[in-house]
Amino acid sequence: MTELDPVIHAQARLRVVASLSALPDCDQVAFPRLQEILGMTAGNLSVHLRRLEEAGYVAVTKTHRGRTPATLIALTRRGRLAFEEYTEAIRALLAPADTKETP
């Protein structure tokens, strides 16, 4: 059995990555909106985003909208791939026993 990706294999970060995967490719979501979708506190979300950013799964862009600063978040190509692989691995674990090793 392959090891599950430890960066994604934590409830909070799995939810973050799953939410971001619902965005179309080449789209970014503003931090407050993501926070609202997830129902997390800003501090909590920041911590998890930093961890995902360090792994190269999430790109965080600081920008300006008019004069107000905005933080935009998106899944990177690598992050999308990691999420797909994680989902595949989970599905494989749930698949009937014939795909697993037998004594």
Partner: peptide, 19 residues
Amino acid sequence: DDLPPEDPAAALRLIDEQR
């Protein structure tokens, strides 16, 4: 919430619900 999902079924449910 840093803990892993309880089991694969819970993980899959979490993914579907969140998406």
